[in-house]
């Protein structure tokens, strides 16, 4: 193993030379300037820093960089270039599900992770899928509705 940590970040091969104990959240924001990844608590309790790691939703505040060796990390910045993103974007826009926006990058990736696993989720499955992403603005209804619209409009994509 070389000294650097090697992983794929938003589709690009990346070498990180810092401390393996560094927090992925901090590294994404400070080293790679991916500021769409938000920090809400640094304790794994709010989901604002959610990213996809090998396709699964994780809290980037709860990951040490060393754990990322060989993995594929996608943040909102990378995900926003995908077709899935377009569908989710339109769905959230249609019901004005974005208020302060701070939980949104994490919420979008939670939506993606959910639809990948369950392309046609029930309302209960949606609420479970988003249950780690706190939102203080919306009461969640509009977000749940947006996911339902995305699942319908994106039928076949996931």
């Amino acid at each position: 193993m070389s000294d650097a940590i090697r992983f794929t970040l938003n589709g690009e091969e990346t070498l990180y030379n810092g401390n393996p104990a560094d927090r992925l959240l901090d590294v994404l924001r400070e080293t790679y300037k991916l500021t769409g990844v938000k920090c809400g608590c640094k304790e794994g309790e709010c989901g604002a820093c959610s990213v996809l790691m090998d396709g699964e939703l994780i809290n980037s505040c709860m990951v040490a960089l060393g754990r990322c060796e060989g993995s594929n990390i996608v943040t909102i910045e990378g995900f926003s270039k995908t077709e899935h993103f377009q569908v989710i974007d339109k769905a959230y826009a249609a019901v004005s599900a974005v208020q302060c926006g701070y939980c949104i990058p994490g919420m979008v990736l939670a939506t993606e992770a959910l639809l990948v696993k369950t392309p046609h989720p029930t309302e209960e499955e949606i609420r479970t899928g988003l249950s780690g992403n706190l939102c203080r603005c919306t009461g969640y209804n509009a977000i749940v509705k947006a996911v339902q619209i995305a699942a319908k409009e994106g039928d076949g994509l996931w």
Partner: peptide, 20 residues
Amino acid sequence: PYGGGTDLMIEGEKDVCYLF
């Protein structure tokens, strides 16, 4: 030993050597 990190990273100790 570092499994998922979900407890360890709450502290986020920097001066530590992890076994992933």
